[in-house]
Every structure is written in structure tokens, then in C-alpha cells.
């Protein structure tokens, strides 16, 4: 476990130089949402998105330094490396969600003097977190299969494909159970979070297994 923590430390140290840019973006988002009166939705969605993307950028940092090859000369296994990468990306996205929630609450209090729509903030934040995780389920194996350079382009295609898949499943569910879009969204709001969370967790594990399998066979 010590080495897995070490690998996460490496990835966090890599984005240290990104602190100023990140602060600038957060301030920019804060001003934009403050002015447009959409604090409860804009910040909780955008901040986890940025943090999640930052997590995926660790593949590019590794690619520039050819770090995988070097790291494999250390007392570490490929399994440790994949495990550390998933944990790092997940922790960073959760961290982004927490920052988003805290910032939204702070801005809401500053603007209105009270906290009226905490449910919206939490709902949007959880939605964004799950959304980012769904993207990562595809993005991370793509990075392992194609490498950071090609992977960046292919992940765009993967996102479009993902949107088609989600839309397709939704339409299929509506047709099979003969329900309208309004009814479908209502079911999702009331019962969907638990089901989606369970599904995302399951597919996150499957995604990890695929990445591990790919990386073990890959020649670095």
C-alpha cells in the first residue's frame, strides 16, 4: 500500500504547478455564476469536471517523462500502478466535488444571506461526480490502450459514443416499460441515484480490471 500511496503522491506533486491556474479558474467560475445567478448548478458541475480532467492529465505527465518505464524499475508492480491511477483520479474528482459544494454554499450565503437551495447544490454535485465517473470508466482504459497522445483524441469519440449509449438505453427503457420522458426522469430523480451509483461503482471496477489486463500485457 505504501507504494500505491507513493504513486498517488507523484501524481499530486505533478499538478502542484497547476495551483495558480486552478485558483484562477475557480475565481472565474465564482464570478460568472455569481453574476448569472446560477451558483447552485454552474459551480457544482464545473468544478468536479475540471478536477476530473486534471486527474486524467496525469497520463500526459507520465507520457512526457516516460515515467512508466522508470517506475517499473522500482519495487512496484503493474497492479500497484493501475490501482494508484484509479484511486488518484477518483480522489481528485471527489475532492473537486467537495470544493464545488463548499464554494457554492459560500457564494450562496454571500449573495442571499442564507442557504435556501442546498438540495439543488448537493443534487447537481452528486450528478456531476457520477457523470465524471461514467466518463472515467471509458477514459482510463482508453489511455492505457492507446497511450496519452492518441488516447486524448479517442476519448472525445468515446464521450460521443457514451452519450449515444446512454440515450439509447434511456429510449429502450422508456419503450419497454411504456413510460414518457417525464415519467422516466421522475423515476430517475426518486430512485435513480441509488441504482446509478451502484451501476457506476460496478462499471468502475470493471473498467479497472480492463485497464489492469491491458497494462499487464503492454510493453512500456
Amino acid at each position: 500500500m505504501k507504494t500505491v500511496v507513493g504513486l498517488m503522491v507523484k501524481d499530486f506533486l505533478n499538478i502542484k504547478s497547476y495551483r495558480t491556474t486552478l485558483m484562477f479558474l475557480l475565481i472565474l467560475y465564482a464570478i460568472t455564476s455569481f453574476a448569472n445567478d446560477n451558483i447552485a448548478t454552474f459551480i457544482p458541475i464545473c468544478v468536479p469536471l475540471i478536477f476530473g480532467m486534471l486527474g486524467i492529465s496525469s497520463f500526459s505527465y507520465d507520457s512526457i517523462a516516460k515515467a512508466d518505464k522508470y517506475v517499473l524499475t522500482l519495487p512496484i508492480t503493474k497492479k500497484d500502478m493501475v490501482r494508484a491511477k484509479y484511486l488518484y483520479v477518483f480522489i481528485l474528482t471527489v475532492l473537486g466535488t467537495i470544493v464545488g459544494i463548499v464554494l457554492s454554499i459560500f457564494l450562496q450565503i454571500v449573495k442571499t444571506g442564507g442557504l435556501t437551495n442546498i438540495e439543488s447544490i448537493i443534487g447537481a454535485s452528486i450528478g456531476a461526480l457520477l457523470g465524471m465517473m461514467v466518463l472515467q470508466i471509458f477514459e482510463i482504459p482508453v489511455m492505457y490502450i492507446f497511450g496519452a497522445e492518441k488516447g486524448r483524441i479517442i476519448q472525445m469519440a468515446a464521450i460521443v459514443l457514451l452519450m449515444f449509449i446512454i440515450s439509447g438505453i434511456s429510449i429502450l427503457v422508456m419503450k419497454v416499460f411504456q413510460i414518457s420522458l417525464e415519467q422516466f426522469l421522475d423515476i430517475l430523480i426518486h430512485y435513480g441515484i441509488a441504482i446509478i451509483t451502484a451501476m457506476v461503482a460496478l462499471f468502475y471496477i470493471i473498467s479497472y480490471k480492463i485497464s489492469l489486463n491491458v497494462f499487464i500485457k503492454k510493453e512500456v
Binding site: G6, V9, K10, L13, K16, D62, A65, K66, A67
Partner: peptide, 21 residues
Amino acid sequence: DSFLSEYFNVIDVNQFMKHMY
């Protein structure tokens, strides 16, 4: 031709390595 990161300084390298060995 390979190392940990182009963005590390020697202190960062130490931070990482003490978890490795």
C-alpha cells in the same frame, strides 16, 4: 531516456522515493 516527471524538483523526488524504498 526516462524518469519520474519533468515537473519535479529534487525535493519532490525525495517525497516520492521515500514511499518507494
